[in-house]
Design a protein around this nucleic acid. Structure first.
Lengths: 181, 181
DNA sequence: CGAGGCTGCGACATCATGCCTCAGGCCGTA
DNA sequence: TACGGCCTGAGGCATGATGTCGCAGCCTCG
């Protein structure tokens, strides 16, 4: 039978190579694009069963690609992967049509499970109630910042003003990675 | 014209009362349910335009209610609200049909904005358009700390552990600001 | 072209935080 | 009653985070 075709949109060379190799060894045929333009250029030319999108492509975001991809390949399963995960972008991604959303770092197995798997790692019904730990202050702050940032279409200055913090401070916070938990 | 009808599913008495009152003052007609059963019992009996679901209802989750609600009221806009937000439940909620997902603490304006949200570019009825300023990070932090502190019956050490911050730091934060804005 | 807004970033004084430590208080229990 | 375990307030210090200012580059609009 034919190999499963997977589209990888990722701007980080190193990570792309690693994940590509890992997936190829598991029998997937990988096509790699590095930005929106390259991805859009592929649309007519090849078929895909799955797609993995890095949320942050240099300056751009891959969210906009989701509707286009879904339009061309209605059955395409899309996984959004990001090192700067937040609830705000997760909600946005899913609403746009992504099938799953995962935070880096994630190993190949997690990625595959999220991509293929129905539910995520755990059966949600009761695990949701069991995980009753409040967010850490840092995590809460990160989520809030991301949410407001999104409402301001990524405008850092405007976001800083609303949050009543100095622009320089916001800038520095955004450069760091979100706290794991 | 008729009032907008809103279904509030929330098991926390205090929070339910506060939010109910705030929304009623803004012209909404609120129906309050405390668990899955009560909610399901309402399905045939009333119409709703919006719904706010607390994710954690005692031992159960409100996620399962979403499909039922959507089925009975296809046009219903659903907002999932939770004090124990996580990316996993956010993704799950949206996939099940929720229209938005918000982490507590959130003030009434933020909740309303998230609920009505979608209808962008809608020239909001003059008055309502006023200020839906998000909370500053400091106030957000303060509220969150207070809430967790309450849950731990004022135990500072336990609170610090949950919040993953140093006890000394929490101690200092508590001594300082009553936080105006 | 020029005004005005946004962005990234260096520098530096100042404030907040993490971390260790001590002393005292409160409770069960051996 | 003395002990261990847990909580609290507080001092001190090294280090990290933040507020402030400034500069240069980039857009966009008139």
């Amino acid at each position: 039978m034919d190999k499963t075709r997977l589209l990888l949109v990722e701007d980080d060379e190193v990570f792309a190579r690693v994940i590509s190799r890992a997936l190829q060894q598991r029998g997937y045929e990988i096509t790699h694009a590095q930005d929106q333009e390259q991805t859009l250029g592929l649309l007519g030319k090849a078929d895909f069963d799955y797609a993995i999108l890095d949320l942050n492509l240099g300056g751009e975001t891959s969210l906009q690609l989701i509707p286009s991809l879904k339009q061309h390949y209605p059955a395409l399963k899309i996984l959004v992967l990001t090192g700067y995960a937040s609830i705000a972008t997760a909600v946005e991604a899913i609403k746009l049509g992504a099938d799953n959303y995962l935070a880096k770092p994630a190993d190949t197995d997690e990625i595959l499970a999220s991509l293929l798997g129905q539910s995520s790692s755990q059966p949600l019904p009761d695990s949701a109630a069991a995980k009753m730990e409040p967010m850490s202050v840092r995590r809460l702050e990160w989520e809030h910042i991301q949410k407001v940032l999104m409402e301001n279409d990524g405008n850092i200055s405007a976001t800083a003003r609303q949050l009543k913090m100095h622009r320089r401070t916001l800038q520095r916070k955004l450069q760091k990675r979100p706290v794991a938990e």
